[in-house]
């Protein structure tokens, strides 16, 4: 099982991504520099969190134009499993691999805390080890996680089961009071049409060790590995 982590200048959660992939795959992921034009042979690609290019211009906008992103888009087309977390999600939307955009949190503040998430679709290669209706606990750490898309796109995402994660409370209740950052319809993570690209704001890679206070994130990585093997 081979995995790769894409590194842009300003990315800072690569360490965490590498640890999670290593735990799930048993091998060290390849680290690919943004200026490279080719990817190694790999079953899983992860675009980690951070502040690529300092979030200047717009979160993820500059990284989306990096040379390596052409190769990532090519692999996406070929059906390779691709996970974008936090800044990685922003980069994937800016690169057009996922619909919508991430705006500033409704509170206008950076938020770092644990949050409950409802797994809305367990029939994806990222979530098939979770049970239907499971509520999981991952941390978030972002300033721009407020998911936006027009209502036509949102309806389509919902209709096609492409909303994978939503902010909720401990009992799985999804409503404005449990909407962490103002996201449309409490959306925390979505997949592309083909189902091989997931973008999400919360950090499953920071919930893989009892020391983190919980290990709910492990199954997301395990699901990816099992689906890809």
């Amino acid at each position: 099982m081979k995995s790769a982590v894409i590194l842009f200048p300003g990315i800072n959660r690569e360490n965490d991504a590498i640890a999670a992939l290593k735990q799930a795959t048993g091998t060290e992921p390849a680290v690919v520099w943004h200026g490279d034009t080719e990817l190694p042979k790999t079953d899983i690609i992860m675009v980690p969190g951070g502040f690529s290019y300092g979030d200047y211009l717009r979160c993820g906008a500059m990284a989306a134009k990096s040379p390596i992103m052409r190769a990532v888009a090519e692999r996406a087309k070929q059906g390779v499993t691709i996970l974008g977390v936090c800044n990685g999600f922003q980069i994937l939307t800016e690169a057009g691999l996922l619909p919508g955009a991430l705006m500033r949190n409704a509170s206008l503040k950076f938020i770092c805390k644990n949050t409950h998430l409802k797994i809305e679709n367990t029939d994806t290669r990222f979530t098939n080890l979770y049970g239907a209706g499971d509520v999981v606990d991952y941390p978030v750490a972002h300033h721009d996680g407020n998911y936006f898309a027009d209502s036509e796109t949102l309806d389509r995402l919902e209709g096609e089961g492409r909303v994978v994660l939503r902010y909720c409370d401990v009992d799985g209740k999804v409503d404005p009071a449990t909407n962490l950052n103002g996201s449309q319809r409490n959306i925390a993570g979505i997949i592309n049409e083909a189902g091989n690209v997931l973008g999400m704001m919360p950090h499953p890679e920071n919930a893989i060790d009892p020391m983190h206070g919980g290990t709910d994130g492990r199954n997301l990585f395990k699901s990816m590995v099992e689906a890809a093997s």
Partner: peptide, 27 residues
């Protein structure tokens, strides 16, 4: 205050803010 600080990045935080001292694992 401290929820506006990323206190988890690098994945080594053992004791978060709000306790007596913060603790990070030596990677």
């Amino acid at each position: 205050i401290w929820e506006q600080y990323d206190h988890l990045v690098r994945g080594n935080t053992v004791i978060r803010p709000g306790g007596d001292a913060g603790v990070v694992r030596v990677e």
